[in-house]
């Protein structure tokens, strides 16, 4: 699989992406590429720009300089919902379900908007299938308010998956979970990746990142300081100093 991944074309590229907030440089000319079906870990200390980077690529806010390419097409000027429809999905660090709607209805919204399905029966059936896939089949009719933390994270992933993404940014999907729960979420992510979805895992739990990723990218103070094989990156002196050696 590693061989095939290496040879595939980049599905997503960021070129010299720069983002400033009132003069503060949150991202400083960051280059990034992600291949079809690749699993990448994005790490960095708090405030290093990880979430800003994800927000920049998914179109939550505009960037000040640089460009973002999806399948070779420049999507820098596209809005977040246009990027979602193309196949860029993300889950949130803090789960943000639509609380007034059931678990299944939360999954149905992206099926309608991102995928453009209109047949209610088909949408319902597909939503049920996605819930089974992420391990929430039994909670289909429940309110998100009744879900546990790990179930909420799975709902986030399910909702992102329902948008039929080609790239998924999992933003701290495992923060605050127990080891068993982390394994559950990791299993879901591996399953999604096995279906061909490229995944960028933004995570603080190093053991999990190393276990999951084929490649690790490190951001420190808005700059990319390392990008490569997990073992090599983790032993990179600058990474140890800036992040691991704290």
């Amino acid at each position: 699989m590693g061989e095939a991944v290496t040879q595939s074309a980049p599905v997503l590229r960021a070129l010299q992406v720069t983002k400033r907030f009132d003069g503060f440089v949150a991202l400083d000319a960051v280059d990034f590429s992600l291949r079809e079906g690749e699993r990448v870990g994005l790490i960095g200390p708090n405030g290093s720009g990880k979430s800003t980077f994800v927000n920049s690529l998914t179109g939550v806010f505009p960037i000040d300089h640089g460009s973002v390419l999806f399948n070779g097409t420049d999507i820098t000027r596209l809005t977040a919902w246009q990027r979602a429809r193309l196949g860029l999905a993300r889950s949130f660090q803090l789960p943000r379900p639509f609380k007034s709607q059931s678990v299944r209805q939360n999954i149905e919204i992206p099926l309608m908007f991102a995928v453009g399905q209109t047949n209610p029966d088909r949408i319902a059936a597909e939503a049920e299938a996605i819930l089974l896939q992420v391990g929430l089949g039994a909670q289909s009719r429940a309110s998100p308010k009744s879900l546990t933390q790990v179930e909420l994270r799975k709902l986030e992933l399910g909702r992102a998956l329902a948008a039929k993404p080609r790239v998924l940014f999992a933003d701290e999907s495992m923060a605050g979970l127990s080891d068993t729960e982390v394994d559950e979420v990791l299993e879901v992510l591996m399953k999604l990746n096995a279906e061909g979805i490229s995944i960028v895992l933004i995570e603080h739990i190093m053991r999990t990142v190393v276990r999951f990723s084929e490649r690790i990218v490190v951001l420190v103070a808005g700059k990319k300081i390392a990008d490569g094989d997990p073992r090599e990156v983790m032993s990179h002196p600058e990474v140890e100093r800036a992040y691991l050696g704290q």
Partner: peptide, 24 residues
């Protein structure tokens, strides 16, 4: 209706709706 539920969704979290393909 899906459209009606999208209105409820936009009232709750337009940002999250945007990221699942809805145009708020």
């Amino acid at each position: 209706t899906f459209l009606g539920r999208a209105i409820l969704a936009v009232s709750q979290d337009p940002g999250a709706l945007r990221l699942v393909g809805g145009n708020p």
